[in-house]
């Protein structure tokens, strides 16, 4: 092999240096998202679950899974927030028809104390796991009822109304109200968790500050059609989106379908990126799979039919 000249070595070095530095380029503060189009992939459970491929400029960038709520047959949610969540799921799913399982809110397993703990206020099936209300950045307080329904409240508004208590609860400002909520959750065996609220009452709640990093994204939307049918919709973007861009695309997509978005939540796709869909069609399920096995999850949101 002929020995390279100094010039060749130098130009190679400069080329590598330019490539290296270009990877540290600053964040572009402009949103280039085009309106999403969707292609129907599969319908099952008597048409109550529908899977779509989401396309942008003819390129598939993700998928959405629509679960119908209301009516005689409806998808029911359950959430496991801490501990052996895989074991809990296995025990719980007996006799049920599981549709999908994914990671839910954020957990902290990096602090130097043992065991992952959910970040933000958290109650699992009546058992309090974390009493700390995160004051900034996590404005979504999610209540998963034992009946499988989900209610979302905006913590900046503090307008969570609990029928059985007959009053509005503001857990960030009223320490007594927080006690009432936790007591109620213990008595009712409710599940509560806190996460990032990206949109509420049909309005986006994040701005360009949400354009920091491209990451895999997964959102849970609660949206109603004009006729009043409620859907829980999982949006899965595995190829990397800015948080703002992903949320805006989802809002535009749902609004274009004349849907009223009640709330849009950010689900964790970090180190424990779990997504396991069971349509019965391997080619679809494999496309929408998360990078982490369900058995390694630190928290799980699951939908099923009885």
């Amino acid at each position: 092999m002929k020995k390279p000249s100094t010039l060749q070595l130098f130009s190679s070095f400069v080329g590598v240096a330019i490539l290296f530095l270009s990877s540290f380029s600053t964040v572009d503060n402009h949103y280039y998202g085009d309106r999403l189009s969707s292609t129907h992939l599969k319908s099952f459970k008597d048409g109550n679950v529908n899977v779509y491929a989401l396309k942008e400029n003819y390129t598939t960038i993700g998928h959405s899974i629509w679960l119908t709520r209301g009516g005689a047959k409806e998808a029911k949610a359950v959430y496991f927030s801490e501990g052996d969540v895989y074991g809990k799921l296995n025990k719980w799913k007996r006799g049920k028809d599981l549709i999908l399982t994914c990671s839910g809110a954020f957990s902290d397993d990096l602090s130097k104390t043992n065991g992952a703990l959910p970040v933000g206020l958290n109650v699992e099936n009546g058992y309090i796991k974390n009493r700390t209300v995160v004051k900034e950045g996590m404005d979504g307080l999610v209540i998963v009822y034992a009946t499988g329904g989900i209610v979302v409240s905006d913590l900046t508004k503090g307008d969570l109304f609990l029928q059985s208590l007959g009053k509005k609860i503001n857990v960030r400002k009223d320490i007594s109200a927080k006690y009432d909520l936790l007591k109620w959750a213990e008595d009712e065996k409710a599940t509560i968790f806190q996460t990032q609220l990206l949109a509420y009452e049909n309005k986006l709640k994040i701005d360009y500050k949400g354009r920091k990093q491209t990451r895999e994204r997964r959102f849970l939307a609660f949206a109603k059609t004009k006729s009043g049918t409620l859907y829980h919709i999982i949006f899965n973007f595995p190829k990397g989106e800015y948080l703002y861009d992903g949320a805006k695309k989802v809002m535009d997509h749902l609004n274009a379908k004349e849907m009223n978005v009640i709330a849009l939540l950010n689900l964790d796709t970090g180190a424990y990126n779990v997504m396991d869909l069971k349509t019965g069609d391997y080619s679809i399920d494999a496309q929408i799979k998360g990078s982490t096995k369900v058995s390694a999850a630190v928290n799980l949101l699951s939908y099923h039919y009885d």
């Binding site: 902290d108 990096l110 130097k112 970040v119 309090i128 974390n130 009493r131 700390t132 995160v134």
Partner: peptide, 8 residues
């Protein structure tokens, strides 16, 4: 049951 968040 109070979680102190430690940035990493």
């Amino acid at each position: 049951q109070y979680l102190v968040s430690i940035p990493t």
